[in-house]
C-alpha cells in the first residue's frame, strides 16, 4: 500500500495504491491521521486500489467518522465498478460522498 499526498488549494488529495485490507488498514490509518487532523476537506482517490476488503471498508468509515467528528469532510473518487458495487451492496456507500471525478470531487467540496 502506497499513499501519495498532495493538495489542491485547501483540499488534501490522497491517492491510495494497492490493496486495502486487514493487513494494510493500520498503516493507512496511521499515515492519513495527520492529514485528517490538519485538513477540513479531503479527497481519497481509490482509482489505484486493487482490492478493498471488509476491514478496508471499515477503515474508510473510520476515517470518515474521524473527519466528521472535527467537522471535516471526505469525498471518495475513482471507485472501480466492483468497489462501488461492493460498497452499495453492503450499505457502506450510504455514508460517503462519492464523486465521479477529481473535478467533481473538488467542486463538491468547494
Amino acid at each position: 500500500m502506497n499513499i501519495a499526498l498532495r493538495t489542491e488549494g485547501a483540499i488534501a488529495v490522497a491517492l491510495l495504491t494497492g490493496a486495502i485490507d486487514g493487513k494494510s488498514a493500520p498503516q493507512v490509518q496511521i499515515e492519513l491521521s495527520p492529514t485528517i487532523e490538519s485538513f477540513e476537506k479531503i479527497i481519497l482517490d481509490l482509482s489505484e486500489v486493487s482490492y478493498l476488503s471488509s476491514a478496508g471498508l471499515r477503515l474508510l468509515l473510520l476515517l470518515h467518522r474521524q473527519a466528521t467528528a472535527k467537522e471535516g469532510k471526505i469525498t471518495l473518487i475513482g471507485l472501480s465498478e466492483e468497489i462501488a458495487d461492493t460498497m452499495s451492496m453492503t450499505g457502506f456507500s450510504n455514508f460517503f460522498d462519492i464523486a465521479d471525478s477529481l473535478e467533481a470531487g473538488l467542486k463538491a467540496l468547494n
Partner: peptide, 20 residues
C-alpha cells in the same frame, strides 16, 4: 446468497437488506 460472499461480506450485505 450474497453477491459479496466471495469477499466474506455476506453479513454486511444481509444486514443492509434488512435495513432497506
Amino acid at each position: 446468497f450474497a453477491a459479496t460472499g466471495r469477499l466474506g461480506m455476506q453479513v454486511d450485505e444481509f444486514k443492509s437488506l434488512v435495513k432497506e
